[in-house]
């Protein structure tokens, strides 16, 4: 009943302004978001959390309207929130109950029947990688486990829209990788639209299809991630031997090349270089080690947007 109807964007923001005493957190934000994995980037204090909280109806905008699945978040909060999952940034878990108890209880407060809540809790805790420890009080959990529980409670009612606020906060590098992998899988394989707010562009870049950049409460840019990076996309090619021969062959086919140590960087204007590199490697019979797309850092790209962003680009990124 609450599926996004055809033609209606999943999220539609019109002139959203949120003022706190002394601060304008969001300033006339107008934006449509289509299904996919969406990165919401900006430095700390850019207004990311405020935006997520407005989408949840946790905060009322000072002016403007926010529609989620075509419905007004202020007037139809409980209905919409049956289909929205939210992973807050901060620690929100009571220490004296187990993950199973908390998540099953929260599933019910999302509208799921008792039995379904229990079943979904078991499934979703497995999905995030919590096993025996899920029966123990959460006070003894590591940060990584706590983040997983926070993700599980946001997923337990199978939302259409998942809002994640800094999901890798406080995690070590391998924990970050695991969490990003989970986000990616959740978005790709289960068709849940995910909005990931983060100040870490590098992470967002790894998982997102779309990017929404805000700074100082204003929209800096919103586009497919390929649009951000396509212009300066690079194909890194590494061969065990014969690098110079390959470089010569590729240059002969009209490609622009850079050298980066043992790696050849091929400028990507369109898809053609992939085939050309493959053909050249085969013709020369070279041992290809790897071939991967590289992107320039997004900070650089924001800095290259003078027209769209008269305000300072996100420095802390």
């Amino acid at each position: 009943m609450c599926e996004s109807t055809d033609g209606t964007p999943l999220i539609s923001l019109r002139g959203i302004t949120k003022r706190f005493p002394g601060v304008t957190a969001l300033d006339e934000l107008t934006l449509d978001i289509e299904p996919g994995i969406i990165g919401l980037v900006g430095s700390n204090g850019a207004g990311k959390s405020t935006l997520l909280r407005i989408l949840l109806g946790l905060l009322a905008p000072t002016s403007g309207t926010a529609l989620v699945m075509g419905r007004d978040v202020v007037r139809e909060g409980p209905l919409i929130r049956q289909f929205v999952g939210y992973m807050p940034e901060h620690d929100v878990l009571p220490p004296d109950v187990s993950a199973t108890e908390l998540v099953a209880h929260l599933a019910q407060t999302s509208g799921l029947p008792v039995t379904a809540s229990r079943e979904r809790t078991a499934e979703v805790l497995r999905h995030v990688g919590l096993y025996e420890e899920r029966y123990r009080p959460m006070g003894g959990y590591s940060t990584g486990m706590r983040q997983r529980v926070k993700l599980a409670q946001a997923l337990v009612h199978d939302p259409r829209l998942l809002l994640l606020d800094e999901p890798t906060n406080g995690l070590d590098p391998s924990g970050r990788d695991d969490m990003l992998e989970l986000v990616l899988r959740t978005g790709r394989e289960f068709g849940i639209t995910v909005v990931v707010a983060s100040h870490l562009l590098g992470e967002i870049q790894r998982v997102c299809d779309f990017l929404v950049a805000i700074e100082g409460g204003r929209l800096l840019r919103a586009d497919r991630i390929t649009q951000f990076t396509g212009r300066t996309g690079l194909l890194a090619v590494e061969v065990d031997e014969g690098r110079d021969r390959l470089a010569a062959a590729l240059a002969a086919r009209g490609l622009t090349l850079h050298e980066d140590g043992r790696v050849l960087l091929v400028e990507l204007i369109d898809e053609a270089p992939y085939d050309l590199v493959r053909d050249s490697v085969v013709e020369l019979g070279l041992p290809l080690v790897r071939m991967e797309q590289r992107r320039h850092s997004l900070e650089d790209l924001f800095r290259d947007q003078p027209a769209a962003a008269p305000a300072a680009a996100p420095r802390r990124g």
Binding site: Q108, P113, A116, D158
Partner: peptide, 22 residues
């Protein structure tokens, strides 16, 4: 290791009154 549990849910969503009662 995560490739086990998640499935989509097509059952009833009982809304606000059920949530309050819970």
């Amino acid at each position: 290791i995560y490739d086990l549990g998640y499935r989509s849910y097509d059952g009833p969503r009982l809304g606000r009154r059920h949530a309050s009662r819970a």
